[in-house]
Design a protein around this nucleic acid. Structure first.
Ligand SMILES: [Mn+2]
Ligand SMILES: [Mn+2]
Ligand SMILES: [Zn+2]
Ligand SMILES: [Zn+2]
Lengths: 141, 141
DNA sequence: TCTCAAATTAGATCTATTCTAAGCTTGTAA
DNA sequence: TTACAAGCTTAGAATAGATCTAATTTGAGA
């Protein structure tokens, strides 16, 4: 876990309480929260961050590459402080949204599309299914 | 190209001019249009389909499995009548959104995640980069 | 401490999508 | 042919996430 203040400084951004809290929250969560979930969770105890600032800050952090936007569900924009290449699993039943290590799909071979797409910048595998918990409880089968 | 009317009947849906036109358009396009693009293109010559009907019909077709929603860009929901498993390429510069054959990533091996996710329903690889045209013209480098 | 560009804010606005309630079409049966 | 019901289409209203605006506050450097 890198100090959020350090990361912000490295990008030439002022370290404000709001930015610090938003980046730290994203670093610490296993989840991929939406802007609205961030507003709610950050202000749960001590309200100090407006909705506008959450949106502004997320855009700023995205622009400098400290977070990425993840958009694999209709109308839902999620944020991810894991900026290393990795993949995702999405549960059809509960919406659970997990990271999958890059290593897991090392086997993925790009040579079949290299001629058609010589300028690839990023690859991501989306795995959809039912998570262990939802399968155990049998909801939504 | 399967007759849209036949597909609609098979799913127990009434064949209306609007449904026929929407499904046929999606079958014939190489693109992955949004609801709004569909409204605009379907009504370009002969206006006969309201915005509400386009949204209703897309939801209906999605529910019966004749089209799928594709959501890999912030705030943009696209529709795809190619319901066979396949992958996608998205151009960062022009937004071009191509199909990539399932065959292209045959090499993809799921065994590393099989223990953690025993109930996988769908897999998709998203490839992002710059398409040949955008690279040639040098826009947005 | 003072200054001022940058950051934050509440609330207005925008926009894609969904909802509502009325009208239309089609198939069926009297 | 007429009556009815079910399903489809429609315009416009409502909703909600995101963005914009303009005023206020903050904080890093002089
Ligand atoms: Mn992630
Ligand atoms: Mn496709
Ligand atoms: Zn689940
Ligand atoms: Zn392009």
């Amino acid at each position: 876990m890198v100090d959020p203040a350090l990361l912000l400084e490295q990008k030439g951004l002022k370290v404000t309480p709001q930015r610090y809290a938003i980046l730290r929250f994203l670093q610490q969560t296993e989840d991929h929260p939406t802007a609205d979930q961030l507003v709610e969770q950050l202000n749960r105890n001590l309200p100090m961050t407006s909705r506008a600032t959450v949106y502004n800050t997320l855009s700023t952090l995205r622009d400098v590459g400290l977070v990425r936007e993840v958009t694999h569900e209709a109308g839902v924009l999620r944020y991810d402080a894991n900026i290393e290449p990795h993949h995702h699993f999405i549960c059809r039943v509960c919406g659970r949204f997990d990271d999958i290590d890059w290593q897991s799909f090392q086997s993925l071979d790009l040579s079949p599309i290299a001629a058609r797409y010589p300028h690839i910048e990023n690859i991501e595998v989306i795995v959809r299914g039912v998570c262990r918990q939802c399968q155990a409880t049998g909801n939504g089968q």
